[in-house]
């Protein structure tokens, strides 16, 4: 009855999930392009000339890694949460969950496809940024590692979001009230060095700080925090959230009556 090993099932779902956003580039890739052209123009070019250098980098250059992270994680999160929620809403996720995929295969397909969308968007933003300011890659290993981990982490969080949401507004709420504040206070737009020490300490509780600084370390070779610690903490967090995803699928949370 089973003609192919496990991989055929898994790759079918992975491919389906990737096709879902690749075939709709106007909905998936164009919006972050436009947004980031605006960010770079306003914050980098127009305002940036009036902001002094941060740790020896022009403001636009300091900003670039933060915008890459912001684009990657919000797209990874949105992809996973939307795909799962839309599938639940229209019940076509039943096609997947009544099939003989293991719960781990289901989760990995959703997480990997969503993370890949996040990474593609991150690359697009970096390329756009390079049109505004010359940028190099000082620490390629860290850049790749952090981009992978942050995209996977937010894809995995998106799976949780897609499972717990009760209607479309909840997805917006998660984005606006959780993701955005974390990002804005996560050192995308400023260096922690400029904060009073109390706020600097509080900021260190924000996981976004480690992501932004990790990717910034990859691009610029500068970070407010230790990149190795950051990578270890984020990797642990990612594994934890993926495990939570798998447990939720196995329990049928949000998927079964």
């Amino acid at each position: 009855m089973v003609e192919n090993p496990v991989s055929a099932r898994f790759y079918t779902l992975l491919e389906r999930e990737v096709q879902r956003f690749v075939r709709r580039p106007w909905n998936t890739f164009l919006p972050p392009m436009i947004t980031n052209v605006l960010y770079f123009s306003v914050f980098g070019v127009i305002l940036g000339t009036r902001i002094q250098e941060i740790q020896g980098f022009s403001y636009i250059l300091f900003l670039l890694p933060g915008l890459v992270v912001l684009g990657a994680i919000s797209n990874a999160f949105e992809n996973a949460s939307f795909s799962i929620f839309h599938g639940r809403w229209n019940e076509y996720i039943h096609e997947t969950i009544t099939s003989p995929l293991s719960y781990t295969e289901m989760v990995l397909a959703y997480v990997l496809s969503s993370a890949s969308r996040g990474i593609v968007v991150g690359v697009i933003i970096a390329v756009i940024g390079a049109f505004f300011t010359p940028v190099g890659v000082e620490q390629p290993f860290y850049l790749v590692a952090f981009m992978l981990v942050v995209s996977l982490l937010f894809a995995a969080l998106g799976v949780v979001g897609g499972l717990v949401a009760k209607d479309f507004d909840h997805l917006t709420v998660m984005n606006q009230f959780i993701l955005r504040p974390l990002v804005f206070f996560g050192g995308v737009f400023y260096s922690l060095e400029i904060l009073p020490s109390l706020w600097r300490t509080v900021s260190l509780l924000n996981p976004m700080v480690y992501m932004v600084n990790g990717v910034r370390y990859g691009f610029l070779g500068y970070s407010d925090v230790d990149p190795n610690t950051a990578l270890a903490v984020l990797s642990g967090l990612t594994i934890g959230v993926v495990a939570l995803d798998i447990a939720m699928f196995a329990r049928g949370y949000g998927l079964t009556d």
Binding site: V2, E3, N4, P5, V6, A8, R9, Y11, T12, L13, R16, Q19, R20, R23, N90, E91, Y92, H94, E95, T96, S99, P100, L101
Partner: peptide, 22 residues
């Protein structure tokens, strides 16, 4: 409860793929 993103022929191919069909 059918997938709305893909043409129906692909929907069927996906379903077969989930069952390990080559």
């Amino acid at each position: 409860n059918v997938d709305r993103f893909f043409p129906i022929r692909e929907v069927l191919m996906h379903k077969a793929g989930y069952h390990g069909v080559s």
